[in-house]
Amino acid sequence: MITKIEHIAIVVNDMEESIAFYSKVFGCKVRLRGKNSSKEMAFLYVKAHPDIEIELIRDIDTVRQYNRSGIVNHLAFTVEDIDKSINQFKDHGVIFNSDEPQPTLEGGRMILFNGPNDELLQLVERLKA
Rank of each mutant, 00 (worst) to 15 (best):
N13T: 04
N13W: 02
N13Y: 06
M15P: 10
E16Y: 09
E16V: 08
E16S: 13
E16D: 15
E16M: 09
E17L: 11
E17W: 00
E17I: 05
S18V: 01
I19N: 06
I19Q: 03
I19M: 06
I19R: 08
A20S: 13
F21M: 04
F21C: 03
F21Q: 07
F21K: 08
F21T: 04
F21G: 08
Y22K: 01
S23W: 01
S23A: 08
K24C: 06
K24D: 14
K24Q: 15
V25M: 09
V25A: 15
V25R: 11
F26C: 01
F26A: 02
G27A: 02
K29H: 05
V30W: 01
V30T: 10
R31D: 14
L32D: 11
L32M: 13
L32F: 13
R33Y: 07
R33S: 09
R33A: 10
R33E: 10
R33W: 01
G34R: 07
G34C: 02
N36R: 00
N36G: 02
S38L: 12
K39R: 13
K39P: 02
E40M: 08
E40P: 09
E40F: 09
M41P: 00
F43E: 03
F43W: 07
F43A: 00
F43P: 00
F43G: 01
L44E: 11
L44P: 10
L44R: 10
L44W: 13
Y45D: 04
Y45W: 07
V46A: 06
V46F: 12
K47E: 15
K47D: 12
A48H: 10
A48I: 12
H49T: 15
D51N: 15
I52G: 06
I52K: 14
I54G: 03
I54C: 04
I54Q: 06
I54E: 07
E55L: 05
E55N: 03
E55G: 02
E55T: 00
L56I: 10
L56G: 10
I57V: 15
R58Y: 05
R58W: 05
I60K: 10
I60V: 05
I60P: 05
D61I: 03
T62K: 14
T62F: 05
V63H: 14
V63T: 12
V63C: 09
V63W: 08
R64A: 06
R64E: 12
R64S: 10
Q65P: 03
Y66W: 11
Y66S: 12
Y66I: 07
N67P: 04
N67Y: 08
N67D: 13
N67A: 12
N67Q: 11
